[in-house]
């Protein structure tokens, strides 16, 4: 552990040593091949990546550096303004690796690419580079085009739905509707359960007290007054004060 094992890299030397020491009767078949096509050097320090940055150890000069592109700032700006664009599903599989070579950002729509935030960023870049617009101006133009195309998409979708409904299609419940129904079902079943619990508790209480049961609401006005007058001396914050007899339930 913690030590390097160089045996895999030294298979050829080892084979030669074993053969010279007559441990092996013959050299392996791959002996010449590994000699002709030697393994690459490993554990060698990479070239210096950066001049010594301030406040960094010299050993960090050989570490990989972050990769930055000019689009990064534009991208963060756009997605900061439109955070829900990140919630849209996006196709990230590359076809040939040369997909971006066929794009022409003099228009915002590209064949074979869906319209998304990346389109706005690339369009803005193009405008800044080829029409020498300032960053906010290019952003405004690209953004407006983007909104326009999103609007057209909405219209297209609505018309398609209308046409489909006209020729007899029907769309089932949406995910929100299904969710609401499930929630309602759960709520109703909870209500049933809670009512049952209350009922059970009340019957338990009824069994515990065998005497006649009267609720506070059933008390008539006179009875209430009588009860209050009975309790009067014991009510706190009166002039007589409260005798230290333990509290009584004053409130019905």
């Amino acid at each position: 552990m913690g030590r390097y094992d160089f045996r895999p890299m030294r298979v050829r030397q080892t084979a030669k040593a074993l053969f010279d020491a007559k441990r092996n009767p013959s050299l392996p078949q791959w002996y010449d091949i590994v000699g002709d096509i030697p393994p690459s050097e490993t554990l060698a320090r990479p070239v210096q990546r950066a001049p010594r940055p301030k406040g960094k150890k010299p050993s960090r000069m050989f570490q990989p550096l972050p990769i930055r592109y000019p689009e990064d700032k534009l991208r963060s700006e756009f997605f900061g303004d439109h955070p829900w664009e990140l919630a849209r599903p996006r196709l990230v599989v590359e076809d040939s690796g040369n997909d971006a070579k066929g794009y022409d950002w003099s228009k915002i729509e590209q064949p074979g690419k869906q319209l998304d935030g990346e389109s706005v960023v690339q369009r803005q870049m193009w405008l800044m580079k080829h029409q020498h617009l300032s960053k906010p101006a290019a952003y405004d133009i690209a953004r407006r085009e983007f909104y326009q195309h999103r609007h057209l998409e909405d219209i297209r979708r609505r018309v398609a739905k209308e046409e489909a409904l006209h020729v007899g299609a029907y769309f089932g419940k949406g995910p929100l509707q299904i969710g609401m129904e499930l929630e309602d079902q759960t709520w109703e079943s909870w209500k049933r359960w809670a009512a049952r619990q209350i009922e059970d508790e009340q019957s338990m209480r009824a069994q515990m007290f065998s005497g006649p049961q009267t609720d506070g609401e059933d008390m008539s006005g006179e009875e209430f007054d009588a009860a209050m007058s009975e309790l009067q001396p014991a009510v706190p914050q009166s002039k007589e004060g409260q005798p230290a007899l333990g509290g009584a339930a004053a409130h019905p």
Binding site: T42, L43, P46, F62, L65, P66, I67
Partner: peptide, 9 residues
């Protein structure tokens, strides 16, 4: 040990 193969972060 892979520092040589890494392009960046």
């Amino acid at each position: 040990a892979n520092a040589r193969y890494i392009h960046g972060i």
